[in-house]
Simulated scan of single mutants.
Amino acid sequence: MTASLPLPYVVFGVTGRTGAAAADALLRAGLAVRVVVRDPAQGRPWAERGAQVAVADLTDLSSMTKALNQARGAYVVSPQHYNREDLFEIADLIADTTARAAVAAEVPRLVALSSIGADRESATGWIGMNRIFEQRLGATGIPTAFLRAAYFMENWMPLVGYAMCSGTLPTFLAPAQRAIPMVATVDVGSAAAALLQEERTATSIVTLSGPKDYAPNDVAAVISASLRKPVDVAVLPEAEWPNALADARFSKAALAGFAEMTRSLNDSHIDIKSDPNAVEWAGTTTLERVIAA
């Protein structure tokens, strides 16, 4: 008689930072993992590490159900299509397909990547897509941990590159001296892996920040210390945002969503402490470490 193999944890988003970090943490813990990719080639590095590989389209119910079958739990994400005018409609389709597939596959537990501000009903821009994801998954009745991450430290990377060359750090966040919660994506993945391994039977909300809050002035100071030369901060007025983001090739709808989200970050409408039902977690990775890397 042969022993049955342990059921895997299914991890989406392994071509991105948080999914890769979650899969890495689970594999390092010696646990069975199944990564879900759209292109088989993207799964080869994970297969070499011993992970199962499933190929699925996030909008296709059949392939999604197959990817989630016989799972111990799953980390699910909804990638956002900033180049499309219908990005909110695509987000709703992905959320609906993920929810229906999880029910069909009888997944016992989910961890879903979300964002601070997802508790707000309006005026959150892009974060509205995370709210849709939460609502669709919440309606399934599957125990789900909604992992509401703070502002990603990695969001600074393109601006850090500019600051290294020019000596000026441009920022959309204002005022420059106001600190907000930020988190490294590696800590998001580690938190997702930890939540997957919990045996909770109820849905929960976890907000995740880093070890401390940072202001744009702090980011400039970190860069300045690394370069050993002064780095100034330039707060970009909203009228300049479209030109500053031209290389990102955002659709008009995406640009409008970014602007609304950023305004709400700046006026504290989006606040990590706005949902009294959330449990607060903190990662350990500092901004200094992210920028140094």
Rank of each mutant, 00 (worst) to 15 (best):
residue 1 M to K: 13
residue 1 M to W: 08
residue 4 S to G: 03
residue 5 L to M: 07
residue 10 V to H: 02
residue 11 V to R: 04
residue 11 V to S: 13
residue 15 T to Y: 10
residue 16 G to S: 15
residue 16 G to C: 14
residue 19 G to R: 10
residue 22 A to Q: 06
residue 23 A to P: 09
residue 25 A to W: 01
residue 30 G to R: 03
residue 40 P to Q: 09
residue 40 P to K: 04
residue 44 R to F: 00
residue 45 P to S: 06
residue 45 P to T: 01
residue 46 W to G: 07
residue 49 R to F: 04
residue 53 V to R: 04
residue 54 A to W: 03
residue 59 T to S: 07
residue 68 L to R: 06
residue 71 A to K: 07
residue 72 R to N: 09
residue 76 V to Y: 03
residue 78 S to V: 12
residue 79 P to Q: 09
residue 82 Y to P: 00
residue 82 Y to M: 15
residue 86 D to Q: 02
residue 87 L to T: 04
residue 89 E to R: 12
residue 93 L to E: 14
residue 95 A to L: 02
residue 101 A to R: 02
residue 107 V to E: 05
residue 109 R to D: 02
residue 111 V to W: 05
residue 114 S to E: 11
residue 116 I to K: 06
residue 119 D to L: 00
residue 122 S to C: 04
residue 123 A to T: 05
residue 126 W to L: 07
residue 128 G to K: 10
residue 132 I to M: 11
residue 133 F to N: 09
residue 134 E to K: 12
residue 135 Q to P: 07
residue 135 Q to R: 12
residue 136 R to G: 11
residue 139 A to T: 11
residue 139 A to P: 05
residue 142 I to N: 13
residue 146 F to E: 05
residue 146 F to W: 14
residue 151 Y to H: 13
residue 151 Y to L: 14
residue 151 Y to F: 15
residue 154 E to P: 06
residue 155 N to M: 11
residue 160 V to T: 11
residue 161 G to P: 02
residue 163 A to H: 03
residue 166 S to N: 07
residue 167 G to C: 04
residue 170 P to W: 01
residue 184 A to G: 08
residue 187 D to Y: 09
residue 189 G to L: 15
residue 190 S to Q: 14
residue 191 A to N: 05
residue 193 A to D: 03
residue 196 L to K: 03
residue 197 Q to D: 03
residue 198 E to P: 01
residue 204 S to R: 09
residue 205 I to A: 11
residue 208 L to C: 07
residue 209 S to F: 00
residue 210 G to K: 04
residue 212 K to Y: 08
residue 213 D to E: 14
residue 221 A to K: 09
residue 222 V to Y: 05
residue 222 V to Q: 06
residue 224 S to V: 01
residue 226 S to P: 01
residue 229 K to M: 04
residue 233 V to K: 00
residue 237 P to I: 00
residue 239 A to V: 01
residue 248 A to I: 02
residue 249 R to Q: 11
residue 250 F to L: 15
residue 252 K to N: 13
residue 255 L to H: 05
residue 258 F to I: 04
residue 262 T to F: 01
residue 264 S to C: 06
residue 271 D to W: 08
residue 281 W to T: 06
residue 281 W to Q: 12
residue 285 T to L: 12
residue 287 L to T: 10
